[in-house]
Simulated scan of single mutants.
Amino acid sequence: MPQKIFAPWDDPQEKPLIRFQNVTKRFGDFTAIDSIDLDIYAREFFALLGPSGCGKTTLMRMLAGFETPSSGTILLAGQDIAPVAPNQRAVNMMFQSYALFPHLSVWDNIAFGLRREKRPKDQVAARVEEMLKLTRLTKFARRKPHQISGGQRQRVALARSLAKAPKLLLLDEPLGALDKKLREETQFELMDIQEKTGTTFVIVTHDQEEAMTVASRVAVMDEGKLMQIATPDRIYEAPNSVYVADFIGDVNIIEGKAHQVGELVQLDWAEGQPALAARTDKNLGLAQTCYLAIRPEKVSISADRPGGANALQGEIIDIAYLGNLSTYHVKLPTGHVIKAQQANTRRISRRPFTWEDKVWVSWTETAAVVLDQ
């Protein structure tokens, strides 16, 4: 039997675990969160993504109870959480700094919250052992935080956060202190642990790759507003604005005036240059300003003029070699720079193009996303 795809947000019968209803948060004259509506479902790994100061941490702190909304309601499992004290919520928060007790062993750090609840000793011991196993820390149980690596400390903080079996775990830039390789490994560990425990995770990050890797859905934020909420593939392939397209991954943006016939848009974008063609389901006004967003991996590069609609000639001014990929920066006569990406499939294959080569860049009518904002 095929496995059911996890997409509770597409099921009108599903009730969200968390619901933000018209939530605004002001600090004096500054609006950190601007009338946000947002639903997050049980068992989701949800990412809040955006640049520093966009409001993502404020949103998380309101869930944890460290901030209260200036207006609007936050519901957790159908209940308004405003009157509930932070330590009474079925919510736990894991901080960027991990905030471990340096004088306590790994075992005692994990047990700390359980002991404060005056749970029976055998119950505490069983739960700590379970968490040590889950986070693969059993053999480090007697060590102090300074005797283990950064990645292991991160797992201790996670084990401690999960020990009390919260409905919701909030992770504030949890992998920020780890180096790139370890961060990538830990992302998969986090996903694995989230799946095993079935806990709803909400992660705050400014690292787009991280959000795209771990999350079931991503909310892209800017200046206290939600710009787009969708699955990672939708955010990447079908961004709803230039801001989202530009924030996630690498992209070429070309501005112009639209002339639409049915699904086909002709874009007048530069004097003396042929119009560019793209397919869209949007209805654009005549000569309306719009934008084409084309990912570099969808742009082909060739020495000879290719057939098809969108073919432009330019000169290579830069090459970024990234091991598995090469990105060519091609400057057009108009001054626009188009990035084209090629996979390096052969080992030490002779690069077909080099600096100052005259080349053609091209893409299909369906490769570009047409955006009107």
Results as ranks from 00 to 15, higher is better:
Gly176Met: 06
Leu312Ser: 03
Ala219Arg: 11
Asn252Trp: 04
Gln373Arg: 11
Lys139Val: 09
Asn310His: 01
Arg234Ile: 14
Phe201Met: 08
Ala42Ile: 05
Leu325Asp: 15
Leu59Ser: 13
Glu209Ile: 08
Thr58Asn: 08
Ile319Val: 13
Val251His: 00
Pro274Ala: 10
Asn324Asp: 13
Trp9Met: 07
Glu297Leu: 10
Leu63Gly: 15
Leu182Ala: 12
Gly262Ser: 10
Gln260His: 09
Pro333Asp: 10
Phe95Tyr: 15
Leu168His: 00
Phe101Ala: 07
Asn310Glu: 00
Thr57Gly: 14
Arg26Thr: 05
Glu315Val: 00
Gly55Glu: 04
Ala311Leu: 02
Phe112Leu: 07
His206Asp: 00
Pro83Gly: 15
Cys290Ile: 14
Pro174Trp: 04
Phe27Tyr: 15
Glu365Gln: 00
Leu267Ala: 03
Gly272Val: 07
Phe112Lys: 04
Thr186Ile: 13
Gly307Val: 02
Ile148His: 10
Val106Met: 03
Leu100Lys: 10
Leu75Gln: 10
Ile193Trp: 11
Tyr321Trp: 12
Gln373Asn: 13
Glu130Ala: 05
Leu286Tyr: 13
Ile5Met: 07
Leu114Met: 12
Ile319Tyr: 05
Met93Leu: 15
Thr364Gly: 12
Leu332Cys: 01
Gln96Asp: 14
Lys358Trp: 10
His336Ala: 04
Gln21Pro: 06
Val84Glu: 12
Ala287Met: 13
Met212Gly: 06
Ala303Lys: 06
Gln154Gly: 15
Glu365Ile: 00
Pro83Phe: 14
Trp360Glu: 07
Gly335Ala: 07
Phe188Tyr: 15
Leu170Gly: 05
Leu190Gln: 11
Phe46Cys: 09
Asn252Lys: 10
Phe20Ala: 05
Ala293Trp: 10
Glu129Tyr: 08
Glu44Ser: 05
Pro306Phe: 07
Ser70Trp: 14
Lys25Met: 01
Leu158Gly: 01
Pro102Arg: 03
Asp80Trp: 06
Ile33Glu: 05
Lys118Glu: 11
Ala111Asp: 04
Met191Glu: 11
Ala82Leu: 15
Thr327Lys: 04
Ser326Pro: 08
Lys167Ser: 14
Leu286Phe: 12
Gln373Tyr: 07
Phe101Pro: 13
Gly323Thr: 12
Thr366Arg: 01
Leu100His: 06
Ile5Asn: 07
Val91Phe: 06
Asp372Glu: 03
Gly150His: 02
Leu325Lys: 14
Arg160Ile: 02
Lys331Asp: 09
Asp29Cys: 06
Val91Leu: 04
Gln123Ile: 01
Ile36Glu: 06
Ser326Gln: 14
Leu171Pro: 04
Asp222Thr: 13
Arg142Tyr: 09
Thr73Pro: 08
Gly28Thr: 09
Ala163Glu: 00
Gln96Gly: 14
